[in-house]
């Protein structure tokens, strides 16, 4: 039956018509206004039907008071139990958490660490977590960097002192890794999403390249190309565009900035970059980069800043470059660097 043959009951029953009366949008408005122009003989009937639809009300319609509105919300929030972490992760991740497995991970992780620190060779201890899901844990000792190719041929540059866990194969379709430290990701597009878990935060991407750095208690995500979405454990979501960096502080506060791509991602190409770095930053970077311990007997002015770029340089050359200009001397012994003011 066409609309022109409708009687009032038909209109009263017609969803598309009710939609126009109750929640008009561009689509319904366009149609029904035009239709009414073309069928003026139906105008009274249509308007009467619309009038009835609008007039039907609850006879008894008490309003929720503002006090009750706020009070209920408060009661709901306070009554709840915190959401179990595991329930929010996807299944493959879930399998990581049960207590019985934690000991295994820690022991294997420790062994891995021992092997690394004694042999300083890129060893990859494999950590079977449970039958269905074989995961691999890789740690990179201080002073070393490593490139890992994942099962989907995505590449991960793992910076010194960092650690990553990932399934040996991504057979269930979901791709994920767990990161401690810093890594640069070149994720291959394959239709399913790729998640990096770092510090209670999920960084979700399709195909893209970006840097993730967890330093002290802060986390930063710098996007080079593509798109990423960052979800923290509190359910906040932030999307990043290329050349944007998201910094998440320990207390959960976050901010977006631009970033110097050489400074943030240069490490993956073995370029050590200082950009008006403070003495503390320089010290920490050298310690990480070369796997040494730096101590200082001298005094450094608070205003002291250093900028410089080194590609595949020896520790000695870098130290000379940095400290010659600052009037400091250095002494290298074993894996210890001592800085001092010349007498």
């Amino acid at each position: 039956m066409k609309y022109k043959d409708y009687d009032i009951i038909d209109f009263l029953l017609e969803e598309f018509f009710i939609q126009w009366v109750k929640n008009p949008d561009k689509n319904t408005r366009h149609f029904w206004e035009k239709w009414l122009q073309q069928h003026p003989e139906k105008r009274d009937m249509v308007l009467e039907a619309a009038s009835i639809i609008r007039s039907v009300k609850y006879a008894n319609s008490p309003e929720l008071s503002d006090e009750m509105y706020v009070e209920s919300f408060e009661n709901i929030i306070k009554a709840g139990h915190p959401i179990p972490e595991r329930k929010l992760k996807n299944k493959s991740w879930f399998s990581f958490y049960p207590l019985k497995n934690i000991a295994a991970i820690l022991i294997f992780g420790f062994c891995g660490w021992m092997v690394h620190s004694h042999m300083i060779v890129g060893v990859q201890p494999e950590v079977p977590v449970e039958k269905e899901e074989i995961t691999v844990r890789r740690t990179v000792p201080l002073g070393k960097r490593s490139i890992i190719t994942l099962a989907d041929s995505s590449r991960v540059f793992l910076n010194s002192g960092s650690e990553m866990e990932y399934p040996k194969s991504f057979n269930q379709g979901d791709r994920w890794v767990r990161l401690k430290g810093e890594a640069f990701f070149e994720v291959k597009k394959n239709g399913s999403s790729f998640s990096v878990f770092a510090k209670n935060t999920e960084i979700k991407v399709l195909g893209t390249s970006f840097n993730v750095k967890e330093a002290d208690k802060d986390l930063s995500v710098a996007l080079v190309s593509g798109k990423v979405q960052v979800n923290d454990q509190k359910g906040n979501q932030v999307r990043l565009n290329p050349a944007e960096m998201l910094a998440i502080k320990e207390d959960g506060k976050f901010s977006k900035t631009s970033f110097d791509s050489l400074e943030v991602t240069g490490w993956k190409d073995r370029i050590l970059v200082f950009r008006s770095a403070s003495f503390r930053e320089v010290k920490r970077k050298i310690e990480n980069w070369y796997g040494v311990e730096v101590s200082s007997n001298g005094k450094v002015s608070r205003e002291w800043k250093y900028s410089g770029i080194y590609k595949e340089e020896t520790l000695e050359n870098v130290l000379r470059g940095i400290f010659i200009t600052s009037g400091m001397q250095y002494h290298i012994e074993n894996r210890k660097v001592t800085l001092y003011n010349p007498k």
Partner: peptide, 14 residues
């Protein structure tokens, strides 16, 4: 349950 009414606010045609 669900008491219903027809409000005054809209004016019928005739």
């Amino acid at each position: 349950y669900f008491p219903i009414t027809l409000s005054h606010e809209s004016v019928l045609i005739h």
